[in-house]
Design a protein around this nucleic acid. Structure first.
Lengths: 228, 228
DNA sequence: TCAAAAGTGTTTCAAGTACACCCATGA
DNA sequence: TCATGGGTGTACTTGAAACACTTTTGA
């Protein structure tokens, strides 16, 4: 069986790319430089080729905005209303990515005139149903992050418990109690203390932790289940 | 803008239809009577028309196997591996339905030679990646049913607490403690006691309960969140 | 010495767990 | 009277929640 690298013209992918900066959750949006949505903000998206899987296509589209590898990327929903696109019937598969902004270098793709991080609470009006897609995605993330250890993807490799707490506060949109949060995390035995501590801070240096998938898998085998 | 009722030939829908019978979870499968999968078991599925939304298409496909209205139906995942279909590139959207088997009359569609309920633990080998789709769907259901009050869709309108408990035991694949389960449900104030009791049983007749979406919505407004 | 965040301790209350137990009914 | 499921009570343990407190560090 042979497949061409032409695109499937009824099916697209849109990516919600989340980042975490200054204790706030952000989303990466592009401004279209050509086409029917020219001048409008949108989620980074693109078409699927006949010879690539959905996941591969999403990854290709994601890496058109950046150079980083090993990004957390997952499908979350398909949007299939008849009139969601302007000129023809297009069904779109929603993916979301969790990235560490520090390591994330932007480079606008060929059909894009601008690429900007927006605070999750100040997202502009976007083309098509992209605001609706983002909303659904954010809700999905809020649930997901409470049961799966995926939040770490938004932080640097080594992070403090306060960073992690502020991340959860930003995603869940509520304050958490510091002592209780620390105790909970420590009790899990999930985070691996690094041998380093914070540097260049004007207060007591905090312990840095790492998330190790092997440790997590090992805990899972023993019946552990993650929960915030 | 005008759309034809021709089908989108790269995109299909497959439905996992769950039922509950004899304290066990079942899935409805069809045996293809023609086409490339002739003679093979499969999830009920079909194509999407240019002029219908995904949800509408899923509902149409579902009601091709039955006559009942008001069925719980929801999308859960898209399967987009390049070689998942045999003859060409087809991406499929997975939907799942929860139905009350008692009220569910089967009628095989035109291209189907057989329609059968299978116990979730004795599902035959199916065509394409349908076993993988079912597995993913079952896992999805197991998580979902613990946080959303959707299990009731598998039971008759009026049901006993034991029926509900056995339903959860079948889905979660573990035994639950009867007194604790009852207390938990009663404490929620979610289930509405019917004025009837069980009949024709050779033991003490149990209270029958109903699930009322209005009651649920009202509880939600007050900050309630469902959980088993 | 002050601000800022690290980190610990303790009390209280709600919820989960594991049972033992009695009740009602038809065969 | 026995089996079967309906339904209640209770003691124990765990964990969430709230908040007061001490420690370390650079400016």
């Amino acid at each position: 069986m042979k497949f061409s690298d032409e695109i499937i013209d009824t099916l697209s992918i849109d990516c919600v790319i989340f980042g975490f900066k200054n204790s706030a959750l952000s989303v990466l949006l592009v401004k279209h430089g050509e086409g029917i949505a020219k001048g409008h903000w949108a989620l980074p998206g693109g078409w699927i080729q006949y010879n690539e899987s959905l996941d591969k296509a999403a990854y290709r589209i994601l890496t058109a905005q950046t150079a980083v590898k090993n990004i957390y990327l997952e499908q979350f929903y398909v949007f299939g209303e008849v009139d969601r696109f302007l000129t023809k019937r297009v069904i779109t598969v929603g993916y979301y990515a969790l990235v560490n902004i520090e390591k994330f270098e932007l480079h606008a793709g060929p059909t894009v005139s601008d690429v900007v991080w927006f605070d999750i609470n100040s997202v502009p009006r976007m083309c098509f149903d992209h605001n609706k897609i983002l909303k659904k995605c954010f809700t999905h993330l809020q649930h997901r992050v409470q049961h799966e250890p995926i939040g770490f993807n938004l932080l640097p490799k080594k992070f403090t418990l306060l960073q992690l707490q502020e991340l959860y506060e930003a995603i869940l949109e509520k304050k958490l109690d510091k002592p209780n949060f620390r105790r909970k995390l420590n009790k899990m035995n999930l985070l691996v203390p690094s041998h380093e501590k914070q540097k260049d801070v004007s207060h007591r240096a905090a312990q840095l932790y790492k998330f190790d998938k092997k440790v997590y898998d090992h805990l899972i085998e023993k019946g552990f289940s993650f929960g915030i």
